[in-house]
Simulated scan of single mutants.
Amino acid sequence: MCRLLGVVSRVPRPLTDTLSDLLDPFTALSHEHADGWGLAARTGREHTVLRGIDPAHASPAYRAALETVAGTALLHLRMASPGLRIEPGNTHPFTAGALSFAHNGFFSPGNALDDLIAPELLAGASGDTDSERFFLRVLTRLRGEDPDPVDALVHTAQDITARAEFASLNCVLLTESALYAYSQEDPESEVSQRRGPEFFRMYYRLGPDDAVVASSGMAPEGHREIGKARESRGARGTWETLPYGRVLEIRHSDLRASVHAVSTG
């Protein structure tokens, strides 16, 4: 049960510039989502990953990380699932080569995918979270039957829904060519029932200079909370809902965005 924020910028800039209207409200969420933070950033072939296990709002390292110059970036605030340790190996984003991945939600049992993950990938897991297993199954598919990230994300979601109970499978994947965001929730889960129908929603904003994807809970400067005001718009673009079971793809090269209509089966 975490929070996600991703951006693709036409020109690499410090995140404090690209996300100037969102960083304060996003960081404020770390008073609740206080079990660590992570950043993955790309500019060309340069790939930077930074993490901490302290609350983002109280972390000098997090504030310094926000000065990173990036063309594409992913930020994650962690709220650890019960029983999972707060340690670097369990802190998002998870990475493999040029890929970075972060998840907002959980599924149980956490080892439901283990026999579907390439043995060498499972043996190299950095921690014990269900979220990392999600990524390792996506990575297994990318290296095998599903080289297209859209297919890999959707088919991994199908694997999870067939084998486990889940609250949300919302996630963001960064590759060398694009940012991908996937949205799926079980509205009957205990968390969804308790937190309400907007807790696991994801939204995106397409502007002339950048494109942003975000989980709920933020109130950008000058606007009502994302998800509670469809009229939330401005010079940077209008917020739209990413429908459940869809994959948003934003290309690094030209900011071209596509919402892929797929079935989660």
Rank of each mutant, 00 (worst) to 15 (best):
R10I: 01
P12R: 07
L15Q: 07
L19A: 08
L22N: 06
F26M: 01
F26C: 01
H33A: 06
A34N: 14
D35Q: 08
G36R: 05
G38W: 08
A40M: 03
E46T: 14
V49R: 08
I53K: 01
A56P: 09
P60A: 03
L66S: 06
V69M: 00
A73Q: 04
M79D: 02
P82S: 10
E87Y: 08
T91N: 06
P93G: 10
T95A: 12
A96C: 11
N111F: 14
P119V: 04
E120Q: 14
L122C: 02
S126W: 06
D128R: 13
R133K: 10
F135Q: 02
F135G: 01
P147H: 04
D148P: 04
D148C: 03
V150T: 14
D151I: 00
A152L: 04
H155Y: 13
T156V: 03
A157D: 07
A157P: 08
A157E: 01
A162M: 02
R163H: 13
T175K: 07
E185H: 09
R195G: 00
R201I: 00
R201M: 05
V213C: 06
S215D: 10
G217H: 06
M218G: 04
M218I: 12
A219K: 11
I226F: 10
K228D: 10
K228N: 13
A229C: 09
R236W: 14
T238M: 07
L248C: 04
E249A: 12
E249D: 00
R251M: 01
R251S: 13
R251L: 08
R256H: 15
